[in-house]
Design a protein around this nucleic acid. Structure first.
Lengths: 171, 171
DNA sequence: TTTCGATCGTGCGTATACATACGAATTTTG
DNA sequence: CAAAATTCGTATGTATACGCACGATCGAAA
């Protein structure tokens, strides 16, 4: 009767993510930024001067994808790449001043989306949902030989105040 | 203290989806099929002879994206497009015999992934997670002017036996 | 019935996601 | 210290995801 189809969970996950992605793209469109570029900037806002590799890992994304994104963001002057101080293969990535300002705007512009998402859930359950999602991601990554991918979700990734919110921190 | 960051939910959703997508791509690689093509085939397996438009809606995807996918799947002989019986603008899409057989293989090949996902959750909670994800998707879609997108998630979309599982139905 | 707006599929352009291969530089090994 | 294995970023190719504009057709309203 209620034998849930096995594919319900993957399909629901897909539908939810695509909906989020579309909404985000729409919200950022007038700023000339995409949803994924926002994720990248958010990652940099949290930990600046990362290696492209580190950046890709924290974004759960691919190095070559990240490179393409960086090229575009660099053109807009939102991001800056410098040679790594000790490793001359690597390049460090950082938000420019303009990039930080832009990110603050984007953060505000996307506030509605975050609020809506949370409002769709019983207030108690948002943490549970987050936990489930992380467990799912960790489980799926654990089997796949993506190196150290499972570390990234569960750990706060060092640093004390890793708050992403650039507005409440504001001066 | 435990003031959850507002971006945790979106980020966790993204990480979980990308992990699922990667795992699926890896599982289907040896069959020459992608994760998204599997979704398309699954949608057809459930309701054949759909319009490209209907297909796109049920997949929570874009018509022009679906078209590109259909072209590729047609080359592989897995899918077949015919002119619509009454509407000469439209084309109906259906799995070929070969497509159905391939889909059965893919279903088996991806069984592990579905099982792993469920195993990552407390057994009682999988339905809850699915419900949350659907609510999130519906909420996000409801605001965005994507026509009738919110209908797609909650409804079984007609038909009696809409089971996706092609194996237990077999013969 | 004629016209006109809505809808279907197509084609084109941009951005992502990822694999793979490559050169350059670093680290490890013997 | 020198050779080998690894790592970093880059470049290329394929498949999505989506917006937009286009021609063809349908359907409704005049």
């Amino acid at each position: 009767m209620f034998a849930a189809e096995k594919s319900e969970l993957p399909m629901a996950l897909r539908a939810a993510y695509l909906a989020l992605h579309r909404r985000s793209d729409a919200a950022f469109e007038k700023y000339g930024i995409t949803a994924d570029q926002f994720v990248l900037m958010a990652t940099l806002a949290r930990g600046n001067a990362l290696t492209q590799r580190e950046l890709a890992q924290r974004m759960t994304s691919d190095p070559s994808t990240v490179r393409a994104m960086l090229v575009l963001l660099e053109k807009q002057g939102l991001v800056q790449r410098d040679v790594h101080p000790t490793d001359s293969r690597a390049r460090t990535v950082a938000l420019t001043v303009s990039g930080r300002r832009k990110f603050r705007q984007l953060w505000v512009a996307s506030e509605t989306i975050r609020t809506e998402m949370l409002s769709a859930l019983p207030p108690t359950e948002s943490q549970a949902l987050i936990g489930f999602l992380r467990r799912v991601a960790n489980t799926l990554n654990a089997m796949h030989p993506t190196p150290s991918a499972s570390d990234l979700i569960s750990e706060p990734t060092a640093s004390l105040n890793t708050s992403l919110d650039p507005v409440s921190d504001r001066t």
